[in-house]
Design a protein around this nucleic acid. Structure first.
Lengths: 351, 351
DNA sequence: CACAATCAGCGAAACGATTAGCTGACGGAT
DNA sequence: ATCCGTCAGCTAATCGTTTCGCTGATTGTG
């Protein structure tokens, strides 16, 4: 690789002049400029970003740390974030903490070493360790999708409670009274918030889900599958299930299929979050759609803004409202859904 | 951020000694080592990878350039690649060329400037420009998923023809004779190869698809949707469709749903490639499953190997065989599928 | 004509690490 | 006591940029 010195030598100028031409940072006479440019072309010179980073103290790198890259929602984030940061002249370094606080710690340490200019973080959460690590970091950071207590970063999230409330209300409006739920880990604002929203909606009608049908687990297809099976084989199973995210909903659908249960005939299912592009398959999930692209663009905007104007702006918290999309995975409570059910169970708030 | 000089000063040693401790590259007496380590801890020192890169000429960065990040198959690649490169001590910089040769060129230029140590590339292909750019690059590169003529890089691909042949044979074995296909762009080895394989399978039985039912387009859900509609509204529509990839298959399913057609009752659909996790939804696609993780791990292995032993090894080409997974999206040819069809059309090789 | 002001372009010092080569101290052999 | 080898640890050059401050030429002013 040719260096700036090679260019300078070939063009018969100093490296300072080459730099001035490359960065357009000082006046250079047309004659010299031309010589420099043709030397650059001849040598196929491109400035070394690593040398430039060292000197400028800016790497033009943005780190994206996602808690679960296998989740299509976050995959979508990667896609949008790549385009967004590229538009601002940055490159995207991607990390997957895989929901493990330890990984997150290691990743944050690496990001510091890489001198990334900013961090887009979907925090694993619940980890004192990593929030300490985070607090010690001076790199501009935007929390995405999940927030954290105790630190005040910019955040871009969705209104989990409201989303869950809306979905649950939909089920309640259909007449369901015995509703179960599978949500994510309760130490995550997504898992917790969605459960809270569901409970609120029930509570507003003087109802509460039976504790044995309020379940939480990792946001994974297989986890939801197992939990769903456990719930579904019970004779007193709920008439509807509210599922906290898209991959979990898929797991539930698989459980239904394996047990020979039909949705919505045997049970209604609705979720917050979904999997993109599956609307051609049956059943079409009734769910909220989360504006992943808008959220990501907004997050990148916040981050770049904070990088550029390093001022200690107060933390900004942007909350998106998801939209309810009705599919055909829910039906009214029917004789069939209630068959073989203990009637006392339905919608009665447990003592 | 503390630098190596700060550590040296605090520990009362030279920077060389600190470096020796950090990299464990020379003997340092226990006493000094301890002083250095505690200075490091006190200052929360972490070596600057950018300075290190400049000196060492190694950035520990691997670039992943994907032609379509929105495609779940490639999203999966990102996920696996991140883990794989991390295991080798690298970080992953992700780029999306979005199937545009121009973007690919820009991205490759940027990668050169970033001094990435290696490139994992899903080439857009068909572009003389970018293969030239590629040929001029000295950075170790592994081509993924698609190969390119004219350059001899390591490649990791799947056997597209065989995959397509297997799927088509399955349809033929069910008795289908009038089979249509929607494949990807013909300048891509994936689009072309899968079409070729399908034709081969037909040909082996003395058949050929009607030209108007052999369609190609970008590997996108909406593209497949439109094409599928065009095909499906015709009274002489095929009794089966072979779709070249997963997102296209989703598009076809959506078209079927919108037109009120049932799969497999009205038409059979099978594909190479699929969308992970949708086996709980109906219909379950009959398709080939592509070993995305194995492929990625292998690609990273090849790449790291080439980075480490910079020797000009001959190009290695690894080809994976996908596996046929039978769902319930295909059925035998029935009276219903053949209803209102011009009998002369079926399975007759066009002149 | 002398002097100041302007300005294109250059030289050299950083940035933070690695590392080749050097220095001195120490110990053992003669 | 002298010499040499060993070796822990230091000094300083280097990687490829950017940029501060300088130089010398040119122009304008009195």
């Amino acid at each position: 690789m040719a260096t700036i010195k090679d260019v300078a030598r070939l063009a018969g100028v100093s490296t300072a002049t080459v730099s001035a031409v490359v960065n357009d940072t000082a006046y250079v006479s047309p004659a010299l400029r031309k010589k420099v440019l043709s030397a650059i072309a001849e040598l196929r010179y491109a400035p070394s970003l690593v040398a430039r980073s060292l000197k400028r103290g800016r790497s033009q790198l943005i780190a994206l740390v996602v808690a679960d890259l296998a989740n299509p929602f976050f995959a979508k984030i990667v896609c949008t974030a790549e385009a967004a940061v590229a538009a601002w002249g940055y490159s995207l370094v991607v990390f997957n903490s895989d929901e493990k606080p330890d990984n997150e710690r290691r990743i944050l340490a690496r990001i510091r070493m890489l001198s990334c200019d900013g961090i887009l973080l979907v925090p694993v959460g619940g980890s004192v360790e990593s929030s300490r690590e985070l607090a010690g970091m001076t790199i501009p950071t935007v929390l995405f999708g999940r927030s954290m207590e105790g630190v005040d970063f910019d955040t871009v999230t969705i209104d989990n409670r409201s989303a869950a409330r809306r979905v649950t209300d939909y089920l309640l409006d259909l007449g369901h009274r015995s509703i179960g739920t599978i949500t994510g880990p309760l130490h995550l604002t997504t898992g917790r918030g969605r459960l809270d929203g569901m409970m609120e909606a029930m509570d507003a009608r003087g109802l509460a889900p039976a504790p044995e049908f309020v379940r939480s687990g990792e946001f994974r297809e297989d986890v939801a599958y197992s939990i769903a099976r456990e719930i579904l084989v019970r004779p007193d199973r709920p008439t509807a299930l509210y599922i906290a995210n898209g991959v979990m909903a898929l797991g539930v659908m698989r459980a239904l299929a394996d047990l020979g249960l039909k949705c919505p005939d045997d049970i209604s299912v609705a979720s917050t979050d979904t999997i993109p592009g599956i609307s051609g398959l049956r059943p079409r999930l009734t769910r909220t759609e989360h504006p992943a692209s808008d959220m990501t663009n907004e997050a990148v905007r916040l981050l770049v803004d904070r990088i550029d104007r390093a001022v200690d702006l107060p933390a900004r918290n942007i909350v998106f409202q998801p939209e309810l999309v009705v599919g055909d995975s829910c039906g009214p409570v029917s004789g069939r859904t209630l068959a073989k059910r203990d009637p006392e169970r339905r919608g009665v708030r447990p003592a």
